[in-house]
Design a binder for these strands. Structure first.
Lengths: 193, 193
DNA sequence: TGTACATCAGTGAACGCGCGTTCACTGATGTAC
DNA sequence: TGTACATCAGTGAACGCGCGTTCACTGATGTAC
């Protein structure tokens, strides 16, 4: 069965839909993410996704959970990097800002109002909470962790919405992490120890 | 000309449209804010807004600018409150979080991706920048101001999207300001002086 | 190994909806004389 | 003060669009015997 023959059954559509959705988020942004556009990009009729996702919302929740897992991984990695404890928040901030710069559409989905019924999806809530928990763990204090999360998140959001022009100074957005790092270091170097 | 007679000419439609839009943002949220819904609420045909706004985007930009002016006013007021300089950020944070809790839909419009072409509207950029400038002025240092803005903004955003359940603990969202204040005080009491 | 049949993934037409925008119009206002 | 007329705000029908979701269907898979 050659791939070019387009068999009637796709075989493994669910992951393909997820991948297509991530591509749309990356290339066209959150506002272009509809069930129909995802199906189209996956090369399948627009009703096909309903065999794998109960609704548009279910797909979005799935994507968001996946996104939180990815973000969490990057935070864990950043927190484990060698350096002084006081540098941890700066590393985390750089990782967070980098993730945001690379996955703006996904971040907007994860944290935005496209998913107003978060409470109805326990797995989503759990994935979301794990971000704050991980930062709190890295900093050794849940309250400081919460505030640090807010700082890092605010920085990332304000940047991707072009409200702060941290990255804009240089050519691309990849400067953002280093700028975020500097900011956070200047902020947190004293109260943390 | 009694008000109940519904004259052909509205008289002062532009402000009425703005008001209608604010009501929709408050009662139904950003996703319900269409030109048609605004016109309907203002009691006017759905083409009427085009006599006062060039496009849907123009109306949104107008609303956002107004929102930034309101937010700025509250920040200025909070920064002028008596107290130690180190308390300023806490007061600003409380004001910011309060504004967010009262105007969630508007805040999403002001800072979200519904307005992807911010750069095309100088007045919008100016209104946006004035927020950061005001916080920087209150704290006496533009870089610290930037980071403080990020913290306060992140806290507000994470709260209104139900990602942090600060307010959710108690009955209303009116606990939010005091909670934000505690967080911010613990964060900034040392590096500020 | 071969056949009947249940299962299920993907199809394509159809639904009703709300949207932004355009257009020729109509009703009201206010200004020039 | 009165009349003709230009101006302009608001109307309602119409456009084309993309959306989420449902439905009866068809093609393929794989299991029971």
């Amino acid at each position: 069965m050659a791939k070019s023959e387009k068999p009637y059954h796709h075989g493994d559509l669910a992951p393909s839909l997820r991948m297509a959705a991530r591509e749309i988020l990356k290339e066209e942004g959150l506002s272009a993410l509809s069930l129909r556009s995802v199906a189209k990009r996956a090369g399948v009729s627009h009703a096909a996704p309903y065999r794998h996702f109960a609704s548009r919302e279910a797909l979005l929740v799935d994507l968001a959970i996946e996104g939180f897992a990815d973000l969490r991984n990057e935070i864990v990695k950043a927190a484990a990097a060698p350096g002084l404890p006081a540098d941890r928040i700066a590393h985390i901030g750089a990782a967070y800002a980098g993730f945001a710069a690379r996955n703006g559409g996904l971040l907007r989905l994860m944290f935005g109002s496209e998913l107003p019924n978060r409470a109805e999806f326990p797995a989503l809530k759990q994935a979301t909470d794990s971000i704050g928990a991980e930062i709190g763990r890295a900093l050794g204090d849940p309250v400081i962790g919460l505030a640090a999360w807010a700082t890092v998140h605010g920085l990332a959001i304000l940047s991707i919405e072009n409200i702060l022009d941290l990255g804009q100074v240089q050519a691309g957005m990849d400067v953002l992490p280093s700028r975020a790092e500097i900011l956070l270091r200047s902020l947190f170097s004293q109260p943390l120890h």
